[in-house]
Amino acid sequence: MKKVLFAMALALAQTAWADGGMDILKSQCSSCHNLTGPAPQTLKELWARKGPDLFYAGNKYRKEWLVQWLQNPTRIRPAGEFYEDHIKPGEKHDEIDPATLKPHVSLSKDDAQAVADALMTLKPKSDLIAKEKIEEGTISKSMGEMVFDKFLGCMACHRIEPDYGGLSGPELYTAGDRLQPEYIASYIRSPQAWDPKIWMPNKHVSDMNIQKLVHYLEALSQENKNGK
């Protein structure tokens, strides 16, 4: 009985915590992040977006990562959002214009926990997540890089090391830590199912290569965390 009461109290506390987090989200985050959906349906709406949509955050992020990152945010999108607003012509090629990029606010530990709890309740895309099944498996770094780089050309827009790869998409050397594996798979399968106007194309990646990419990104994050 005591156990049941304790569990109920804990559940209530977590709900209260998430409610507090939702208050923070609404008051401090909603000017840059879309908390209610839908994703941009026109280019004009896409260009106006200042940060990633969070209305499906519970389908996307790993909670532990959110708690840590919100306390100590680092840049995930080297060219920000919308990328074309943050680049300028350079000597050899277009360059990022750092003066246009603003740092993300950081939260206290308690607020980060509350906001992460609130974000994890936002799951309107669970139907897409349910379609993905990630098989157990590993892939060598060289084979993963072959698929990512040579076969599919993902490095054109994404970094797989802090100083290697493209800049218009989010860096992927922490993606395995940041994102749920089913989300990675679903987003690769159809970026447009999540974000109809996004500048990531659908490359019609096979089921087999989707599995390989998920395993590769997880291995890459592990390596990045180990500081190799």
């Binding site: 280019l43 060219a79 050899k92 090629h93 277009d94 490095m155 827009c157 493209g166």
Partner: peptide
């Protein structure tokens, strides 16, 4: 023109000359 700015400029460049922000390691 708007589609070009959104999807093509990342690699083909703001001036359309192939010198996009992504090209260094290609």
């Amino acid at each position: 023109r708007d589609n070009y700015r959104t999807y093509c400029v990342q690699c083909h460049g703001m001036a359309g000359n192939g010198k996009g922000v992504n090209i260094r390691d290609m």
